[in-house]
Design a protein around this nucleic acid. Sequence first.
DNA 1: CTGAAAGCGCTAACAG
DNA 2: CTGTTAGCGCTTTCAG
Lengths: 346, 346
Amino acid sequence: MSVTIKDVAKVANVAPSTVSRVIANSPRISERTKEKVRQAMKELDYHPNYNARNLANKSTKTIGLIMPNSVNKTFQNPFFPEVIRGISTKAHQLDYGLYLSTGQSDEEIFEEVQDMVLGRRVDGIILLYSKVNDKLMSYLYHEKFPFTVIGRPYDQEKLDVTYVNNDNFKAAKTVTEYLLLLGHERIAFIGGNLETVVTLDHMEGYKKALMNADIGVKDDYVVFHEELQEGGQEAVIDLMSLSDRPTALIVADDIMTFGVMRMLSEMDVKVPEDISIISFNNVLISELSSPPMTTVDINIYSLGFEAANCLIDQINHPDIKTKQVIIPHKLIKRQTCQKISNRSFN
Amino acid sequence: MSVTIKDVAKVANVAPSTVSRVIANSPRISERTKEKVRQAMKELDYHPNYNARNLANKSTKTIGLIMPNSVNKTFQNPFFPEVIRGISTKAHQLDYGLYLSTGQSDEEIFEEVQDMVLGRRVDGIILLYSKVNDKLMSYLYHEKFPFTVIGRPYDQEKLDVTYVNNDNFKAAKTVTEYLLLLGHERIAFIGGNLETVVTLDHMEGYKKALMNADIGVKDDYVVFHEELQEGGQEAVIDLMSLSDRPTALIVADDIMTFGVMRMLSEMDVKVPEDISIISFNNVLISELSSPPMTTVDINIYSLGFEAANCLIDQINHPDIKTKQVIIPHKLIKRQTCQKISNRSFN
DNA sequence: CTGAAAGCGCTAACAG
DNA sequence: CTGTTAGCGCTTTCAG
């Protein structure tokens, strides 16, 4: 079998407990013995057994990542690799490992999380999404298990969970105002999954801006779709069939925007000449659309990085106050928006 | 503290070992006691402690996923969520968990893997990439630790590792032949990272097809780039500056193709009228380019699914023969290729 | 400053 | 069919 702490102890001529202390770098061990022990560890290529250590410590130094249910293909979104990259970086710095959920349906995921929590498989959890009335969040909340949400909780009574979010309301409002300033009045909104908090926040921001400008919210101009690929395309069909076609589109997600632009180009509607588009996320490919899309950079990497940071804080200081951090966003102007032109079609 | 096997034993009025047997669903326990114990487990909401169980079992039921070093941003590629989805599905079916590497540089990753292996943190490993002369692969190979590669080993002496791959040579060859049949002769190749086995295989296939057609391989027509976004764009600049511009492009990756098309459109080169493009992977967004790209579907999901399958087999039957599985690919014809036209520019 | 011993929660002989 | 006991490899009192 593998080399254990006892083997090291034997070689170094000390007790196992001493070796353990050296690993923990206890100050109560003399430099001389430390050196001796370290020597032995190198010699034997000793690596501590995680499970034994975790068991004795009641801590695993790993954090669980919960993906949204992958039944619809949201998981395809390059958003996820990027948040994970952020999380990963922080986790690595602080010597934490990452454990991934594998469930496909909400029930499977719930089961899984329960196992993680009660089975002490992870020290804390990051929810990579946030949706309304999430059973999972309620569960973690009531178990008082350390967790942080990317996005935000929806129910009022859970405002005190730790989360990392963008100001999506504000972002959507600003974006709408921007289009308004460019002279657009017929502005449509293509949102994502309605169960998702970010969608709701976007919509509120959109409505608010319109109201402030004394422009009524037209129901026909507000559509939702959870499918990233087909979603954008179908939405376009609906919107372009209206008698008073919109002159500007606010789209929930860059990937969806690709679909939107695809469909528009099929219909020979020119962007931005005939219609302006503005989108959210700024995933890496978003600059590669033709024309390159104007979008809101939400700093996905930082969302992940901060989430890991907050979670680990929470793990280390169980009585710490919960934290709510807002990652700044930024409008990235590229080439899908322009002042409304007189040659507005229809 | 949490509820343990002893608590359950007490409530059910049996010995801890009996409870353990019920968990394992041992046939040597009467249905009556099984029922009694299960009852108690529900009552107490018992969930076994993973670490204790892993320690006693010397097995963790979790598999390690090793990402490529994320220094360059290859990880952004939607390829990864999709392989992971495949892996995840199989893993979930067989009750395996997923553990993610977090290292950023090759050295960090190597350290990490060594810890995983020697520290018994995972039962097996999947390498999500394959590059030439990979230290990591050599390590796992010599440790005789269960692992499978997505892609294939490059060195001759390691042909007997278990891997899941596409026939990338053939795919590239076919694709080149296809362009040849469309009348193209000036066909350029834009490859990915040269350290990557798939790139090498693509290149070989490309050359082979040209040779078979008695067309010389022009060095200027073969360029490599590891950056997904900028890569495509830079490559286009190089190629379009040639006096005899290519009339067709073979691009290593869909995301890169977005960059290629972006740049081409900036230069007012029309696809496919002026230049044909064919790409690899068929990630989900690839159908959303304008025009939608012709690409080779490599069945990313299956790559992951099979890799998990092979690995778990290997874990359960350590003496099983290694396996090499080839996932079929398929040319997806969309709208970026056409017969060479007389109005060929330059 | 270091050693002995108990224990983390579960499994696996070995008895019976 | 079920209970007793001894570990799995590490940490942590408690002595000294």
